[in-house]
């Protein structure tokens, strides 16, 4: 952990890691989605529309996983005043928001042919929409704070408090009556109610999107570090 605290050492690892994660992720995504579109079977009840699962579920996991990472980084920033932690939290916000938005849009496109509606205000859909709003609020708050020369501590507190929505999203389908169906895959219990022929392309797709997400975060962290360096140097010479 402490070895990564040093930006120079971080860059030494991040530079070669970025293309590996990016291309590796792209390869897995293309493979998994091709299988999802053309090879995987249709569902006994939903028919062809089940294929949306291969983009919807990874987007949902990354939207939620993104905020979890953002909250952990915010916690490290607040307690240990870790400079890289602040940069990591900020780097996660935009890709997290994009995947949360993709989850909502693909879910809506899946809802119409299956449930018969694009949108309903049930607990799962509403809490996921709140996650997207939290991302947008975080990005706006962080930008405003930095413009005034702050260290992003208010944004970090917001990131930490907002994490409470993650377990709410997760348990919404068990705690409340919802239109959205219950949980299909539990990593904790290592069980799934998705047939193996659909489960493996889904897991490969999720792995691919996760790698790509990692590459995007690394790129955004590297950009932030480079910008910091430029600003510091310009200050010194002016």
């Amino acid at each position: 952990m402490q070895t990564l605290a040093n930006p120079a050492r971080f860059l030494k690892i991040a530079r070669p890691l970025t293309p590996v994660l990016g291309w590796g992720g792209a390869l897995l995504i293309v493979g998994a989605l091709a299988v999802g579109l053309f090879v995987a079977p249709r569902d006994y009840l939903q028919g062809e529309s089940v294929r949306i699962i291969y983009v919807h579920v990874p987007a949902a996991w990354l939207g939620m996983g993104g905020w979890t990472g953002l909250a952990i980084a915010s916690f490290m920033q607040l307690v240990w005043r870790h400079p890289l932690a602040a940069i990591a939290a900020r780097a996660i916000a935009v890709p997290g928001a994009v995947f949360a938005a993709l989850c909502l849009v693909t879910g809506s496109l899946w809802g119409k042919p299956t449930w018969g509606t694009y949108w309903q205000w049930d607990a799962r859909l509403t809490s996921m929409l709140i996650l997207l709003f939290l991302y947008i609020a975080y990005i706006a708050l962080d930008d405003a704070e930095r413009e005034r020369g702050g260290e992003g501590r208010i944004a970090a507190i917001f990131g930490l408090v907002g994490a409470i929505n993650i377990p709410i999203i997760h348990y919404s389908v068990e705690y409340w009556n919802t239109l959205h169906q219950g949980q299909s895959i539990s990593f904790l219990r290592a069980s799934s109610t998705v047939d193996a022929s659909m489960l493996w392309p889904l897991l490969v797709s999720a792995a691919g999107f996760s790698l790509l997400f990692g590459a995007i975060v690394l790129m955004r962290m590297r950009a932030a570090l480079a910008r910091q360096k430029v600003e510091a140097r310009l200050r010194r010479y002016s």
Partner: peptide
């Protein structure tokens, strides 16, 4: 619906 959701995901990522 399938193609629309795949296209939007591709565009976004």
């Amino acid at each position: 619906f399938i193609l629309a959701s795949y296209a939007l995901t591709a565009l976004g990522t």
